[in-house]
């Protein structure tokens, strides 16, 4: 089964290289006792293409495309990788004409390990999509949601005090790609101090990712102190869904609700149009706008 999936991915990669649809294929290379990202540029190498690791390849693709003037790059991507590319496209972070995806559906075992809610991309080239299956364990979220605010504070201060500010969460995240990172500015996060002040570092990062995070779990896997940061992002993602009916990574045409443009037009809470009703609902939800 697994071999068949790998064979399908290799076949697709080979045909893309041979037809010139892509100049090179970015994927994971196994077979040497370890699995690492590798740029396959010759069809003969594709025998080493492996699907046995989980790695945020979109981050690598971004760096490559910055430097690389050549043609199109094919990327072997799981569901989460594809959602990364959707978000990157939204943010104009990369030219989608230069990227082609080789979609890989995750196996049940992989999906379970990741706790994934949607373990397959929209376009599947290898494997069988496990549709309608949610492997995410909500119990840890329920536990947090059931706490009082002060208990949550105790929980998070304790957990976040382990942070050694290695920036692993930021560095592993394909969607954390600002040129100037706010987390490095002494104005917002004090330099040379660990743990970072509660809630500065983590609140800032969580907010920056609120409308982008696709719940891939790369940050949590990268964290050397085992901070369960993913559950925070997951909870925020659910708030985005509840407040704005928005889910990151769904569709590149969807605009982040946290942005506005002038076409939105000035409106008041008394307006008739849909936007006005929406704003009124948001205002009522938080119960504090105006007086």
């Amino acid at each position: 089964m697994e071999e068949r999936r790998e064979e399908q991915a290799r076949e697709r990669a080979r045909s893309m290289l041979l037809s010139g649809e892509a100049r090179a294929v970015l994927g994971l290379r196994g077979g040497r006792g370890q699995v690492l990202p590798y740029l396959f540029s010759r069809p003969e190498e594709l025998g080493d293409l492996s699907l046995s690791g989980i790695y945020p390849l979109a981050k690598v693709a971004l760096r490559l495309l910055e430097k690389w003037e050549g043609g199109r790059l094919a990327v072997v991507s799981r569901g989460c990788d594809e959602r990364h590319f959707v978000e990157l496209e939204k943010k104009n972070a990369l030219d989608t004409r230069r990227v082609a995806l080789i979609g890989v559906a995750c196996t049940e075992e992989e999906a379970r390990e990741c706790g994934c809610s949607r373990p397959y991309p929209n376009q599947v080239d290898a494997g069988h999509p496990l549709a309608d299956a949610d492997f995410f364990d909500r119990r840890e979220l329920e536990e947090l949601l059931g706490m009082k605010v002060s208990e949550r504070r105790r929980y998070w201060t304790e957990v976040l005090s382990r942070c050694i500010k290695c920036y692993g969460c930021r560095n592993s995240c394909p969607l954390c790609n600002c040129v100037d990172c706010r987390l490095e500015e002494s104005r917002w996060v004090r330099v040379g101090e660990i743990p970072p002040e509660y809630p500065s570092f983590h609140l800032i990062r969580a907010f920056h990712l609120a409308d982008k995070c696709v719940d891939c779990g790369a940050c949590e896997r990268a964290c050397p102190m085992h901070i369960p940061i993913r559950r925070l992002h997951r909870l925020i993602g659910e708030e985005m869904k509840r407040l704005f009916d928005y889910r990151a990574g769904r569709d590149a045409g969807e605009k982040s609700p946290l942005l506005t443009d002038l076409e939105e037009g000035p409106f008041t809470t008394e307006g008739e149009d849909e936007v006005a009703r929406f704003m009124e609902a948001v205002a009522r939800e938080v119960g504090w706008v105006g007086l």
Binding site: L144, V149, S150, E151, R152, R153, R154, Y155, W156, T157, P199, H202, L203, A206, F207, A210, L232, L235, I236, E239, M240, L243, F244, P257, L258, T260, M279, V282, A283, E285, V286, V289
Partner: peptide
Amino acid sequence: LKRFALLRNMLSLLG
């Protein structure tokens, strides 16, 4: 307004 609606919920989640 939208930003603060989210921020308030985030603050609550962070305790």
